[in-house]
Simulated scan of single mutants.
Amino acid sequence: MDNIVGPKLRLLRAKLGLSQRALAKKAGVPSSTVSLVESGRTSPSVGSLKRLLDAAGLSLGEFFSQDFEQPQQVFFRSEEFTEISQGDVSYRQLGCGQASSLQILHETYQPGADSGRVPLSHEGEEGGLVVEGRLEVTVGDQVRVLKPGDGYLFSSLLPHRFRNIGDAPCVIISACTPPTF
């Protein structure tokens, strides 16, 4: 049973268009629970699985009897991107980041907006291209201001931060592997 629960849960969640965090919040379980179950690093208790399935509108029987496989969507219109943030920074995700080993984002930073005062650090790699505006990127002890056409690529283990230092919105197309949002 263990080896089918994670992949089935991932497919169900993708079919419902929910992020791992959204499903966990809806189910009232820690957000790490969904990630651990989907990756096969833990087996959910019957109670935990039932809470997740209740949040998804399914019974245990329906979960194990249904096939959630869908043809993989290849092309996406702009309106099909998933907004995974709010406020002065917009992260619009192409496809379902958890269903892929690559996450692609259309990012918009309003003037003065940043990724947070505390630098980010996580497993993986990320890169991006500035399409519009100016972006100050800090990676480790390096700081650079990028303009349209400039890009970045680095190990995400290095502490990093992004900040729009211009007077207009800054637009970036970025990629991250593995997905982190």
Rank of each mutant, 00 (worst) to 15 (best):
S39L: 09
S39N: 13
G40H: 06
G40I: 10
G40S: 06
V46H: 09
V46A: 13
S48V: 15
S48Q: 13
K50V: 09
K50I: 02
L53G: 08
L53M: 06
L53C: 05
D54R: 05
D54E: 15
D54A: 11
D54N: 14
A55R: 09
A56H: 03
L58A: 03
L58R: 07
L60P: 10
L60K: 00
G61K: 14
G61N: 14
G61C: 00
E62P: 07
E62L: 01
E62D: 12
F63V: 07
F64Q: 07
S65N: 09
S65E: 13
Q66L: 10
F68P: 03
F68I: 09
F68R: 08
F68S: 08
Q70M: 13
Q70A: 13
P71W: 08
P71N: 13
Q73C: 00
V74L: 15
F75Q: 03
F75A: 09
R77H: 06
R77E: 12
R77K: 15
R77F: 04
S78P: 01
S78V: 05
E79I: 08
E80R: 04
E80H: 07
E80Q: 15
F81R: 15
F81K: 11
F81S: 09
T82D: 04
T82G: 04
T82R: 15
T82Y: 01
S85H: 02
S85L: 05
Q86F: 12
D88L: 07
D88M: 05
D88H: 10
V89F: 05
Y91S: 08
Y91V: 01
Q93H: 11
L94K: 01
L94R: 02
G95Q: 01
G95P: 02
G95E: 02
C96Y: 14
Q98L: 12
Q98E: 13
A99M: 14
A99R: 14
A99G: 14
S100G: 03
S100Q: 11
S100R: 13
L102D: 00
Q103E: 15
Q103L: 07
Q103S: 12
Q103I: 00
I104Y: 05
L105Q: 03
L105S: 01
E107R: 01
E107M: 14
Y109D: 09
P111M: 02
G112K: 12
G112V: 02
A113L: 11
D114A: 09
S115K: 11
G116F: 01
R117H: 12
R117I: 13
R117C: 05
V118M: 08
V118L: 13
P119T: 03
P119Q: 03
S121E: 05
S121G: 14
S121R: 03
H122G: 04
H122S: 08
E123W: 04
E123V: 00
G124T: 12
G124D: 01
E125D: 08
E125A: 06
G127V: 02
G127E: 03
L129K: 00
V131Q: 11
